[in-house]
Design a protein around this nucleic acid. Structure first.
Length: 439
DNA sequence: TCTGGGGTCCTAGGACCC
DNA sequence: TCTGGGGTCCTAGGACCC
């Protein structure tokens, strides 16, 4: 049975040998903090943290802040005094800045490698297949060029599978003094050494819950997971974990995804800056979030057929009554028209709104998303009128040119009372002409 | 007083089909 | 006494990622 594999297969003969697949995972160090430092070199060496929307909790920490023991997700109000005492610089999230810096980092990487996949705002897989050895030099070249062009420090992990590249990147950061931030994990001896040292939950795809279950099976390290029988992992857990284990052994199960598939769900949800009690305030917030979701929908050239609107009170204060509810609505036709979406969102809100609660958050979810031009209609289902598409295109063009919210639904005020707190916001260094760097 | 905002994929189970 | 063997679609829930 096994005789079909191996060198006897005619297709494997011939002059050219397929080069071995190699991936790199490039990951920005403390990305949001690094972005704040790009135009504030005085912050180098200073502990820096970036807070979530509403200045709620810590979502990024510089190395110095980590050293002080500040943990991810720590509520800011509990930390403020400690931060003041230790000279910690805190910032509100400045997504306009981070998004723009991210674009620059990705374009820089793109100029150096044959193909790449943007995995998140601060991470990117690159295809290094066929690039001349030694690849560790290529890794260092990427790191240096990104820093030279964007002032963002990155780590680079190189391996034959994505899961191992992630692990290599992790190792590069963990043992930065020895690695200089670049690790090539293709050498089996080095790979096994690293696998044995890293706990299983450092593996991409193994989180808190799985860690507990795996440890019950005696799987403590990445090495243990790699050695475990893949088939029984599939039976006991899922095909996902099976692939993870195989990838750890160097068997490729995940490919580079260069084109991002359109999202199947689009969500816009946010905590309010302060608790809201009135239907009118929630109505305004819901209209605003719906507008944002509709923008995202149109940006990927999609239409949606289902809208869900949800509201909730704060969940932490035991003194106040809690309430959370949502309603899912079928739309009259597949649409990307902000006006139609807002209308349905308001209808939904009216159904779930209850008087007398301190609301903290609203959420809009667009679902059953399809691509424009891929809809098969029927005689009895109207299609979205063409004029609506033209109007939305104009709306987006105006807002692109003059800034988000320049043209908006009439019920949304410019500075609403529910908008989020951002008391520690840095400048729009790269996105606002009135806020460019001054020397 | 104060605790984020997005996403994805997979599985199990029920209802239903032939 | 004995009770098949495939499927699909939907929803809820659980796990993960950054």
């Amino acid at each position: 049975m096994n005789s079909r594999s191996g060198a006897s297969l005619p297709i494997a003969c011939g002059a050219s040998v397929m080069p071995e697949q190699v991936y790199a995972l490039i990951d920005c160090n403390s990305f949001y903090c690094s972005c704040e430092r790009v135009f504030r070199p005085d912050l180098n060496g200073v502990p820096v943290v970036v807070l979530s929307n509403n200045d709620g909790c810590v979502i990024a920490r510089s190395a110095e802040a980590k050293k002080l023991g500040i943990s991810m997700g720590a509520p800011w109000f509990q930390l403020r005094e400690f931060a003041r005492q230790h000279g910690v610089q805190a910032f509100s999230s400045n997504y306009a800045l981070y998004g723009d810096v991210s674009d620059r980092v990705m374009r820089t990487i793109g100029s150096l490698v044959p193909a790449y996949e943007i995995y998140s705002i601060d991470e990117c897989f690159a295809d290094l297949t066929g690039i001349p050895e030694p690849l560790i030099d290529m890794g260092r070249a990427i790191k240096d060029k990104v820093f030279q062009w964007t002032r963002i420090p990155v780590g680079v992990g190189i391996a034959n599978t994505k899961t191992l590249a992630k692990l290599a990147n992790h190792a590069a950061k963990r043992w930065i003094d020895r690695t200089g931030g670049v690790v090539d994990l293709r050498d089996p001896e080095l790979r096994d050494k690293v696998l044995r040292k890293l706990p299983v939950d450092e593996v991409w795809g193994v989180g808190r819950r799985l860690k507990v279950k795996l440890e019950a099976l005696g799987i403590q390290t990445a090495w243990d997971l790699a050695q475990y029988d893949a088939w029984s992992l599939r039976k006991q857990f899922s095909v996902v974990l099976e692939k993870t284990a195989r990838e750890l052994r160097g068997v490729r199960c995940l490919d580079l995804e260069e084109v991002e598939p359109p999202k199947q769900m689009i969500c816009s949800s946010r905590m309010f800056g302060t608790r809201q009690y009135q239907h009118s305030a929630l109505a305004e917030a819901v209209a605003s979030y719906t507008s944002r979701a509709a923008e995202k929908l149109r940006a990927q050239k999609s239409l949606c057929q289902v809208l869900r609107v949800g509201i909730q009170t704060g969940m932490f204060n035991p003194e106040q009554p809690r309430y959370a509810n949502s309603v899912t609505l079928q739309l009259p036709y597949p649409t990307d028209d902000t006006r139609v979406l807002i209308q349905y969102a308001q209808f939904g809100l009216a159904r779930i709104f209850r008087e007398g609660y301190a609301y903290s958050k609203a959420e809009i979810l667009l679902a059953e998303i399809c691509q424009r031009g891929e809809i098969t209609g029927d005689l009895f289902t109207p299609a979205q009128p063409a004029i609506a598409g033209q109007l939305m295109a104009t709306l987006d063009a105006v807002n692109r040119k003059y800034g988000r919210g320049t043209l908006r639904a009439a019920r949304i005020r410019e500075a609403p009372g529910w908008s989020m707190r951002r008391e520690l916001l840095s400048q729009g260094f790269t996105t606002r002409i009135d806020q460019v760097w001054q020397i």
